[in-house]
Each structure stands twice: as structure tokens, then as C-alpha cells.
Amino acid sequence: MDESIDYLDQPCYDTINRVKLYSESLARYSKSPYLYPLYGLGELPQGFARLSAIYGGTYMLNKPTEEIIVQNGKVVGVKSEGEIARCKQLICDPSYVKDRVEKVGQVIRVICILSHPIKITNDANSCQIIIPQNQVNRKSDIYVCMISFAHNVAAQGKYMAIVSTTVEAKEPEKEIRPALELLEPTEQKFVSISDLFVPKDLGTESQIVISCAYDATTHFETTCDDIKDIYKRMTGSEFDFEEMKRKKNDIYGED
């Protein structure tokens, strides 16, 4: 079934909940229901480093990985610069364990630097655009994520747009042309094509829990799904979001 219209055969309950979440999120922190960290996504690992330190974790930078040590089929440590960091479980991305992942496709990404907002976005300083597959006679959607000086990731008056999609043909740049036309004129663009890897197994035996490579989506939905899947593979149970929800008195100061 065509992925862009299969929602027509689904119950409306999920859609209603999504609309409810959207409306509850509006104007909670600013004019948008979406959050994006100032100074870029690098602030997320910064936050993790601080939280990790509170719980006794050690955050090491610029440490090359020489070897992942496995004994009796199970990970026991990681060797770096002659030293071994012992562990009972290892969480990593596909680049560290190429023999344990398989290629399932490719993604093309183009980073464009602009001196203007994207047309037909009401001069928004940030936006997400999804060009449906049917509209451009493709099997995959085309994604555009635009951020700007408003997020402290670019100079004043500059905008950064990332265009991405799943590669389907021999000339990937032609596949994203509809999105690039939306961004014109562009000052500069940087094109990259990366392989899409997924783990061969769940890591139950080896305790090497591998994430999937980033796909073409730019709204983080599949990334969040991968994080939840990694948590389940690590602990054997689903993450309980109910424990994370703020209580009424946290929000309104009421009992």
C-alpha cells in the first residue's frame, strides 16, 4: 500500500491524540510546539555529559577505539590506546562494528547555506518541510529541515537548510531537485551520500547493542523509535513514560 495514504484506513484515535499533543504543546515555551536546542544538537550530548557525571559516569573525548573485546561471545571491554575499559554491555553506532551490521540502502543529504528564509513559509526562522513521494513520483518522501541564526547555529541573517531523502536511482542529486528549487538562491551547498546500516541481531547474546544509522527523516521520529528500541534491548522492558510525566502540581502548583 502507498505509505502516504495508508492513514485513510487507520482508526482516528491516534490522529486525535497527536492533534491533542500538538495543541497542548503550543506556546508552552515559545510560539512553536517544537523544541530545538540553541547552539545546535551538540547541546544534547553536553546535557548527557552533565547528567552522566551526576550518576558517576565518565565522559571521555578524543579516544580512538582500537578493539572491542569479546569473550565467549559476549562483550567484556573496549581497548583504547593500550588501555581496556571494562563493561558488561556496549551501546554503539554501526561505524564501530561493521561486521555486525548490514547495508539496507543509502541516504543523500545536502546542507545549504542561505541568506533568506524559504519561500512560502511566512519568513519563518525555522521550519520542517516534507515533499510527499506521490508529488514527485518517488517511493520515498523528501525532507527539508531549516534552522537559522535564531538558534545560534549561523551568523546573523543566515539560514541553514538540510535536504535529505533515500537514494533510489543512480543520480541522487537529481532526486532532491524539487527541494533544492524551494531553497533558491543558495549561497553554498555541501553534498554527501551515506550508507544506511542496521544491526544484524538484537545484541541479546553479545550484549553489543547497536543503533541504526540515521535515515533520511529530519523530524527525529525514527530516531526516537530507535532510542526506545535500544532501551528495550538493553533492559528487556519498554521504557515507562508514565514515570516521567509531570504531575499536576508540578505544572500548576496544585495538590
Results as ranks from 00 to 15, higher is better:
106 Q>Y: 09
107 V>K: 09
107 V>A: 03
109 R>F: 03
112 C>E: 03
113 I>T: 13
115 S>Q: 11
115 S>D: 14
117 P>K: 10
120 I>P: 00
121 T>E: 03
122 N>G: 02
123 D>E: 15
125 N>A: 06
125 N>R: 11
126 S>A: 14
126 S>K: 09
127 C>D: 09
128 Q>C: 04
128 Q>L: 14
128 Q>N: 12
129 I>S: 05
130 I>P: 05
131 I>Q: 01
132 P>N: 04
134 N>D: 08
135 Q>C: 02
135 Q>A: 12
136 V>Q: 03
137 N>H: 13
137 N>D: 09
140 S>E: 14
141 D>T: 00
142 I>C: 01
143 Y>T: 06
144 V>K: 05
144 V>T: 05
146 M>K: 01
146 M>W: 01
147 I>W: 05
148 S>A: 08
149 F>Q: 07
150 A>T: 09
151 H>G: 02
152 N>E: 14
154 A>Y: 07
154 A>M: 11
156 Q>A: 11
158 K>A: 11
158 K>H: 13
158 K>V: 03
160 M>H: 12
160 M>N: 11
161 A>P: 00
164 S>K: 07
167 V>S: 04
167 V>T: 08
169 A>W: 02
175 E>Y: 05
176 I>G: 02
176 I>A: 03
178 P>T: 11
179 A>H: 06
180 L>P: 01
181 E>Y: 00
184 E>F: 01
185 P>C: 10
186 T>Y: 04
186 T>L: 03
187 E>S: 11
187 E>L: 15
189 K>F: 01
189 K>R: 15
191 V>M: 03
193 I>E: 09
195 D>C: 06
197 F>A: 06
201 D>R: 08
202 L>V: 08
202 L>F: 08
204 T>Q: 12
204 T>L: 09
206 S>T: 14
209 V>C: 02
209 V>A: 01
213 A>K: 05
213 A>Q: 09
215 D>W: 06
220 F>W: 08
224 C>M: 14
224 C>Y: 15
227 I>P: 00
229 D>E: 13
230 I>F: 04
230 I>D: 09
230 I>R: 08
231 Y>A: 07
233 R>T: 07
234 M>K: 06
235 T>I: 10
235 T>C: 05
238 E>N: 13
242 E>A: 14
242 E>G: 10
244 M>F: 10
